[in-house]
């Protein structure tokens, strides 16, 4: 992303010139308080929102409003939205996972193979014919990841992947995400989760990137975090490893 600026139709400026480069295979956490512009930034990555200034390039392909380009961009960039009930709109799990690749023109056995592969990757193969509303929240989140994986994206973007998950589901999802051979951009304010999964973190606040560096370094800077309404759970200190009370 180069100099991306975006203003909503009501004139509210959500992004003030974002410069961000993510290398292939990197796992990056996008941190920031509520209303920082994280989701707006994500929607630029696959051309749902078009920047008023600047441009976005994905794997050498510039995002524009040309239909063929958009289709290719949306294949390359898979977005997993925060609420799995928004993502899963078809009556069965298998149909929903098939939706993306079918839009890419896949049919028959090839399509079925994609669905199997994606469901296997998130450990949900046994639930293919079930209705989404009969799955637990954690299972729905995993299926939502599968619906995007089925398109074999190069970049996987997750909006608050750990929200509303119980600790075991949260860990299971982390294991799955770690096993995927894709570039990962994770939007979150779950700082330990970012620490666990991403070597690099970017802090976004007020539509600007205010910090970009190795996750442990950023998370150890208490003042920086406090300035941007981010907080670690009390006893958690990545580098010193101890709560201040122990020192």
């Amino acid at each position: 992303m180069r100099g991306v600026r975006y203003a909503y139709p009501d004139g509210h400026v959500a992004l003030h010139g974002i410069d961000l480069t993510v290398a292939k295979g990197e796992r990056v956490a996008l941190l920031g308080p509520n209303g920082a512009g994280k989701t707006t930034l994500v929607l630029h990555l696959n051309g749902i929102l078009t920047p008023s200034e600047g441009h976005v390039v994905v794997g050498g392909l510039a995002v524009d409003q040309d239909r063929a380009t958009l289709a290719e961009i949306r294949r390359r960039v898979g977005i997993v939205f925060q609420d799995p009930d928004d993502q899963l709109f078809l009556p069965t799990v298998a149909e929903d996972v098939a939706f993306g690749p079918a839009n890419l023109g896949l049919r028959g056995p090839e399509l079925a193979a994609r669905v199997d592969e994606a469901l296997a990757a998130v450990g949900m193969s046994g639930h293919r014919d079930r209705a989404p509303h009969h799955l637990s929240f954690g299972q729905r989140r995993r299926v939502a990841v599968a619906t995007v994986l089925a398109m074999r994206p190069e970049i996987l973007v997750l909006d608050e992947p750990s929200s509303n998950l119980d600790p075991a589901a949260r860990r299971e999802l982390a294991d799955i995400l770690r096993s995927l051979p894709v570039t990962l951009l994770m939007v979150t304010h779950d700082l330990p989760y970012a620490f666990e999964l991403c070597d690099r973190s970017v802090i976004l606040d007020g539509g600007r990137i205010v910090a970009d560096g190795p996750t442990p370094v950023l998370l150890d800077d208490e003042e920086l975090l406090a300035r941007h309404r981010l907080e670690l759970p009390y006893p958690f200190r990545p580098i010193r490893g101890r709560a201040p009370a122990d020192e």
């Binding site: 977005i79 939205f81 928004d86 149909e95 993306g100 839009n103 398109m151």
Partner: peptide
């Protein structure tokens, strides 16, 4: 939005 992100262009793919 989630549908568009997965390549929806206004017609459902004839899956079934």
């Amino acid at each position: 939005l989630a549908m568009v992100s997965r390549g929806y262009t206004g017609r459902m793919p004839p899956v079934w």
